[in-house]
Simulated scan of single mutants.
Amino acid sequence: MALEMGLWRADGNKLDRIKPTAIGLESQLEAYIESDPAILGVSLLVVGRQVATAHGGYIDLLAVDETGTVHVLELKRDKTPRDVTAQALDYGSWVSALSHSDIVAIWNAYKPHQPFEVAFAEAFGGAPPEDLNASQVFTIVAASVDAATERIVRFLNEGYGIPINVVFFRHFEDGGNRYLARTWLVDHEVQSTKSGSAGKQVKSKEPWNGQDWYCSFGDDGTSRNWDDAVEYGFVSAGGQSWYSRTLKNLPVGGRVFACIPGSGYVGVGTVTGAAVRFDQLNVDTDNGPVPLTSLPLRGDYSRPGDEDDDVAEWAVPVEWVHTVPKAGAVWQKGMFANQNSVAKLRQAFTIERVSTAFGLDDD
């Protein structure tokens, strides 16, 4: 039996059913969702409307959620049940092959005057995940649903775990008031099914240039101080192996973008040596190489138990190309940040913004 939605007016002990009105709702739903995708009950950022596929079709709406999952939103309009479900899956097969850069290009064609990273940060409060389009969700939007569509979608969703669902809306009028009601065919929860293809996971990431690295420099004013790092040429991390482990990934010759959490990007430089314990790092001075710990440091890089390498502070020597004080840190919505001490910096948006702010493009 096809799913039906009802609305009643409660007047004392009497219930009067309000009949839905036929106002050509399906022709308006695309505009409703584009202007406020929250009416679907999930936070989405629409990245394209009437997106042309490589096979001659047009996806009504394409959107992403905060996890980077891409949502294909297809309106039923006058399509037959077989056509609408087949079309949603066909579009989904095309979308699944899109790379990170492809999704950003679709956004740029849709909203050319706002960077995707900024729009994502405004919608979800943080930078886009590195894995963008690692999974997809297919949603059929309809003003009504028929038994055949219900049967097909339930078969795919509940029987085979394919993340396809139907959200349908009905329009009601009562005493001059107008209402839009929504329900889902299958109990709704955001589905994020990861592809089993290792190649797909790599493709869903923004390409890495093989050179640039992000480094989180935790300047808390006491145990670690950015002015020390600038004056003596290093980045450091420690306290637990989880922090120092990724620091050791910095390769000699790599370019490192230093970021102070909560402030922003403060320096770009070139790695000149491998990671060593902080108390074993020598730096060049006018009198030749000397232990870093013998110099007047503003921070205290020792801690109880740091005789254990996993607890100790570790440092990597860096030749700075450009630095700014902590108070002059560069930050913009959508810039990359990471919980690890060091990570590959793939996000072109961050690299471009920092390079421009530091004048690196002029060198």
Rank of each mutant, 00 (worst) to 15 (best):
N13W: 07
I18G: 01
K19F: 06
A22T: 09
L25Y: 07
S27F: 06
S27C: 00
Q28M: 03
A31D: 12
Y32K: 11
E34C: 09
S35I: 06
V51Y: 05
T53E: 09
A54R: 12
A63M: 08
V72F: 03
E74V: 01
D78Q: 15
D78M: 07
K79A: 14
V84N: 07
T85K: 03
A86I: 00
A88Y: 04
S101G: 13
I103T: 02
Y110C: 08
P112Y: 05
G125E: 11
P128E: 04
N133T: 02
Q136C: 13
V137F: 06
A142E: 07
D146L: 02
T149P: 02
F155A: 15
G159R: 11
Y160A: 14
I162P: 05
I164E: 00
F168G: 04
F169R: 08
Y179T: 05
A181S: 14
A181E: 10
T183C: 12
W184S: 05
E189M: 09
V190A: 13
V190L: 12
S192Y: 01
G196W: 05
K203M: 06
G210E: 09
D212E: 11
S216N: 05
F217E: 08
G221T: 10
R224S: 07
R224E: 00
N225G: 00
W226V: 13
W226E: 01
D227A: 13
A229C: 15
E231N: 15
Y232P: 13
G233E: 12
G238E: 09
Q240Y: 15
W242L: 01
Y243V: 04
S244P: 15
V252Y: 06
R255K: 15
A258H: 08
G262F: 13
G269M: 09
G273I: 03
D286Q: 08
N287P: 00
V290S: 01
P296D: 14
D300A: 14
S302H: 14
A312Q: 12
T323G: 15
V324L: 14
K326G: 04
A327K: 07
A327T: 14
W331L: 12
Q332P: 04
K333Y: 07
V342E: 00
V342D: 06
L345F: 02
L345E: 07
R346H: 11
Q347E: 01
F349P: 10
I351F: 04
R353K: 12
F358C: 07
G359R: 00
L360P: 10
D363P: 00
